[in-house]
């Protein structure tokens, strides 16, 4: 009797999970459906679950449309995300290593100085940051979009925590071989820390690709638009071409889904490590 009830409970939980999974996937389905469907299928009075014909030509039309600089925006986003990720990994990992492994009397003061900026919500600082960047003359430039975002206290913090737990024997062996800090770091530490680089790199890349407020503020000329800013211009346009909008959305999400699926194990590990500060 009891095992029957338990079986029933399990079946109910599984049904609930499947229903929730479907619910969570519906937005993706809508995006792809509306991207490939003809305008008349989208706006038809009756709901069409599967469009009558799939128009893969919409992707080509999107890139041919001169009114929305989608190709250029994708190029901008790619450059920005790659540069931001590479720069952040380099700067934050070195900083984290120095804090964790090189004895220095005031290391704690430096560490708290870095942590302090985590207390200030970054979005509140967009006005002051804009003030600085505009006085440097970096508005609507790649520099303005990348450089101010390179100094992620969060990434430095993650690297420091990771390197605190890095096995000291490996470094000792390098020391015996006569390697200094610099060569120990590049030859021993970095090659043996790939998972943490993958985790932080993926998180930074996704964050950079998806960020909106800063590119909106800085990318004022169309030539400096990122994908997100270009997409947002659809939302406020006078007339909206629905299938073009959703094709653009799908194209912008695709690279991330790939990054996400490939690196998911590392991302999950990184998120788990970041959320709990004890």
């Amino acid at each position: 009797m009891d095992s029957h009830l338990r079986g029933l409970a399990r079946a109910l939980r599984l049904t609930l999970l499947i229903a929730l999974a479907v619910l969570f996937l519906i937005p993706f389905y809508l995006m792809v459906r509306d991207g490939l469907a003809s305008e008349s299928d989208i706006t038809a009075p009756g709901w069409t679950f599967f469009p009558h014909t799939l128009h893969f030509s919409h992707v080509r039309e999107l890139f041919d449309d001169p009114s929305v600089p989608m190709a250029h925006a994708l190029w901008n986003s790619t450059r920005i995300a790659v540069l931001t990720t590479a720069g952040t990994l380099l700067l934050a990992s070195m900083c984290g290593y120095g804090l964790a492994r090189i004895p220095y009397p005031h290391a704690n003061a430096v560490f708290y100085g870095i942590l302090g900026t985590l207390m200030i919500p970054s979005a509140v600082t967009f006005v002051p940051s804009f003030v600085l960047v505009s006085s440097l003359g970096w508005v609507s430039s790649l520099r303005g979009l990348v450089v101010p975002t390179l100094f992620s206290a969060f990434a430095a913090f993650l690297f420091r925590q990771y390197f605190l737990g890095f096995p000291g024997e490996l470094e000792d062996a390098a020391r015996v071989d006569g390697l200094g800090y610099w060569r120990t770091y590049w030859r021993i530490v970095v090659p043996n820390s790939q998972p943490v680089f993958a985790a932080v790199g993926a998180i930074v890349f996704i964050g950079s690709w998806n960020s909106f407020l800063w590119p909106l503020v800085i990318g004022q000329d169309q030539s400096a638009w990122t994908v997100q800013v270009a997409l947002a211009s659809f939302a406020t346009a006078q007339t909206v071409n629905l299938h073009e909008l959703f094709t653009a959305a799908a194209v912008s999400v695709l690279p991330l889904v790939v990054v996400f699926v490939v690196l998911q194990r590392h991302i999950v590990a990184g998120v788990e490590r970041s959320g709990i500060d004890d």
Partner: peptide, 17 residues
């Protein structure tokens, strides 16, 4: 998976679809 989506894309799906 939705974590991979940007707020912009999600907002467009919500607003238009």
């Amino acid at each position: 998976l939705p974590t991979a989506c940007s707020y912009v894309v999600a907002s467009l799906i919500w607003k238009m679809a």
